[in-house]
Design a binder for these strands. Structure first.
Lengths: 197, 197
DNA sequence: ACCTGAACACCGTTCAAGT
DNA sequence: ACCTGAACACCGTTCAAGT
C-alpha cells in the first residue's frame, strides 16, 4: 500500500477512497490479467487443439504476473474477462461431447490442473525466492543412491524436464516441456473418457 | 510467532533460539505433514491403482494442514519423508514402463497436478476466506444466460461437482468427486502415453 | 470529491541482558 | 543453554481534518 501510494505520488491512506481493501485491488489486477488471455474463437481447430492453446495462453498470462497467480482461480468468475474465459472452455468441452456432471468435471479438471500446476511452478520461481535452492541442492547431494535408487536413476534426465528435481540447470522458462507434457496427457485422458461413453 | 510463543508459554523472541526464521518452521511442519502420507509398498496392485491411492493420500494430508499446503511442493525433496514419497512415485512410474525424459515428465505431471489442484482447491476454502462467496454468488446471479449460454447450461450440474462454479451448495469435502475425476483422467492419459511407445 | 497526517493494531525479527 | 524485555522496521487500515 505504501509502495503503491509512493508510485502514485499519494499518501497510503488515499488509496482507501478508491478501493476498500488490498484484496479488492488484487482482484482488479487479476481481472486485468484475465483480460490478457486470448479467447478468440477458432472453430476450424480440434477441441483438444483449442484447449491446448488456451492452457498455454493461461500459463503465459500467469507468468506475466506471478504475484497475482495464486488468486487467479478465486477470481476467474468475478469479472467479465474471467466469465468469458470460463464460457469459452465450457463451450469447447460441450461441443467436444461432454455433458451433465462430466462436463463440469472436465471443466474442473482442466482449469484446476492449469491454474494449480502453474501456481506450484511459480511458487518455486527463482525470482520469488532464492533460498530454497541451496536447501534443495544439499538435499539432492546428500541423497543416498542406494536408499533412493529410482530418484538417483532419474536425475540425469531431469535436465530439461526439471520440476521437483534440479531446476538449477534451466533458468528461463525451464518448465515449458513439463507443462506441455502435462496438458497433453490431461487432454489424452479427457479424450479417452469421451470414447468410453 | 507471537501466537506460537503464547502457545508455548514463551516470549516470541525465544523461538529464534530454536529456529532461524518462520520459513524454517513452516518447512519443518511441512516435513511432518509429508511423513503423514502412507507410502507403503503394495506390489500386488496396478501402477495406476497405486498412484491413485497416493494422490488421495497426498490430498488428505494437505487437507489436514491447509495452511502449509502452499509450500508443500517446495518442500517435497528437503526432508526424508518427502524424498521417500518422491522415490515411491518414481519407482511406480519406472516399473509402469516410463523411462528417460518421459519418466521425469510423468513424475512432474503427477506431482504438479496433485499438489497444484489441491492448492487451488484449498485457496478457496470457506474456512480460509468467506468473503469471496458473496462476490461469486453476485457474479453468478448477474450472469446473463444469453451472453454465457454454456455456463448457464452447465450450472444445474455444478451441484456435486462444484469447483469454479457454485461451491455454495456443498460444504464438507465438496470436491472429492472432482478430484477423483481429475486424477483418473490424468492416469488414463499416462496410460495412453505408455501404449504409444 | 479527493487527499493529508497521524495514528492504530499487528507483523517477523534482533539483541542485550538475565538465569 | 535457554529465555525475557524491549525495541526496530514494516505491515494494512482508519479517520479527523484539510482543500
Amino acid at each position: 500500500m505504501r509502495a503503491l501510494g509512493d508510485a502514485l505520488g499519494v499518501a497510503p491512506g488515499a488509496i482507501y477512497w478508491h478501493f476498500s481493501s488490498k484484496e479488492e485491488i488484487v482482484g482488479a489486477v487479476s481481472a486485468l490479467v484475465l483480460s490478457d488471455i486470448d479467447v478468440t474463437d477458432t472453430r476450424d481447430r480440434s477441441w483438444h487443439g483449442e484447449l491446448n492453446d488456451l492452457a498455454h495462453a493461461m500459463r503465459r498470462a500467469m507468468h506475466r504476473h506471478p504475484n497475482v497467480a495464486p488468486v487467479f482461480g478465486t477470481q476467474i468468475l468475478t469479472s467479465i474477462y474471467g466469465a468469458t474465459l470460463a464460457e469459452r472452455i465450457m463451450t469447447i468441452l460441450a461441443e467436444a461431447g461432454f455433458s451433465g456432471d462430466d462436463l463440469v468435471h472436465a471443466y474442473n479438471a482442466f482449469t484446476g490442473t492449469v491454474l494449480g500446476w502453474v501456481t506450484v511452478e511459480l511458487s518455486r520461481s527463482p525470482t520469488v525466492d532464492m533460498s530454497w535452492r541451496d536447501g534443495l541442492r544439499a538435499a539432492l547431494d546428500g541423497l543416498d543412491a542406494s536408499e533412493y535408487p529410482a530418484l538417483a536413476a532419474a536425475m540425469p534426465h531431469a535436465r530439461n524436464a526439471a520440476f521437483m528435481l534440479r531446476w538449477d540447470l534451466a533458468e528461463i522458462n525451464p518448465l515449458d516441456d513439463a507443462f506441455s507434457f502435462t496438458i497433453s496427457v490431461l487432454l489424452d485422458g479427457l479424450r479417452a473418457r469421451l470414447r468410453q461413453r
